[in-house]
């Protein structure tokens, strides 16, 4: 289940390294109840833990609460009841220790070039121009977009834009990466390429990832563990014990695919 760590992708102290929580509960949602104003609760007494360094994939139908759970971890929303914590510390708001990759391209800054978009988090943190540029160029290359750095988002294809988002997230990555259906708006062929690229980029990083998707194949390709949510609760958990790199056509892959699909279809 562990992935090989060589040299970490980058070295940055995790925010809140005191208060160590047990590794298996690095991110923890305990008895969380949440509803949007004036609406029925999306999550009721919801419990979820994410282990340090694991790649957790959440699947579920629309409205099951998976995005809400992610938003709570990200700190964009606060739970009305229960606790949401990282490394034992309660989460009070968004922060660079939990970087988010969004679906679609709306989080890209259209007035900046691709390279400047990637540098964005580094500039916020006050990194020098040369250093941030160097790192951004390196990451641009690693996501396969060398030479495209001076283009603006509207000049790039959907797949390229998602790669810019990935590059932006990874170049500023500290400990946790949250991804909300990042490849949903991309065509199927590009999607598989992006999945492979993501895995290779994460291979040397000491990162905990929470990934939301509708796509079962995507879940089986990426996940250390898949959880299936329905109507605001975790209904199934599956450890995906496939060695990496995973072959999408193999029999073992297919069997895990089946398991997830059946879990999704169960009432």
């Amino acid at each position: 289940m562990t992935r090989a760590h060589a040299t970490p992708l980058h070295i940055a102290p995790a925010v809140g390294c005191m208060g160590k929580a047990p590794n298996a509960e690095y991110i923890a949602l305990k008895d969380v109840t949440f509803s949007y104003p004036g609406q029925h609760p999306v999550l009721t007494d919801f419990n979820l833990t994410v282990a340090r360094g694991e790649l957790l994939v959440i699947v579920g139908e629309s409205g099951c609460g998976k995005t809400t759970a992610l938003n709570l971890i990200a700190g964009f929303e606060s739970a009305q009841k229960g606790t949401v914590s990282i490394d034992g510390e309660p989460i009070t708001g968004p922060g660079p220790d939990r970087i988010v990759v969004f679906q679609g391209d709306r989080s890209l800054l259209g007035w900046l070039t691709a390279l400047h978009n990637i540098e964005f988090g580094l500039k916020l943190a006050g990194m020098s121009r040369q250093e941030s540029r160097r790192r951004a160029l390196e990451m641009l290359d690693r996501v396969g977009l060398a030479g495209q750095g001076d283009k603006y988002p509207h000049e790039l294809s959907g797949g390229m834009k998602q790669r810019i988002q990935l590059a932006r997230a990874l170049v500023s990555l500290q400990r946790v990466l949250l991804m909300d259906e990042p490849f949903a708006a991309v065509d199927a062929l590009t999607r598989t390429t992006l999945q492979d690229q993501l895995l290779s980029l994460l291979a040397n990083a000491d990162a905990t990832v929470v990934f939301i998707t509708h796509d079962i194949a995507e879940a089986v390709t990426l996940a250390d563990r898949v959880i299936v949510m329905r109507r605001g609760a975790v209904r199934h958990t599956l450890e995906v014990e496939l060695p990496r790199p995973r072959t999408r056509g193999s029999a073992e892959f297919a069997s895990f695919y089946d398991k997830v699909e059946r879990a999704l279809r169960q009432p």
Partner: peptide
């Protein structure tokens, strides 16, 4: 999404205003 992205990157109020709100 732009605002959320910036907040998740650790932007301060001033940074959010100058780098996201104004150019946006």
């Amino acid at each position: 999404d732009k605002i959320r992205m910036a907040l998740a990157m650790g932007a301060t109020r001033a940074q959010l205003f100058l780098r996201i709100i104004l150019p946006g």
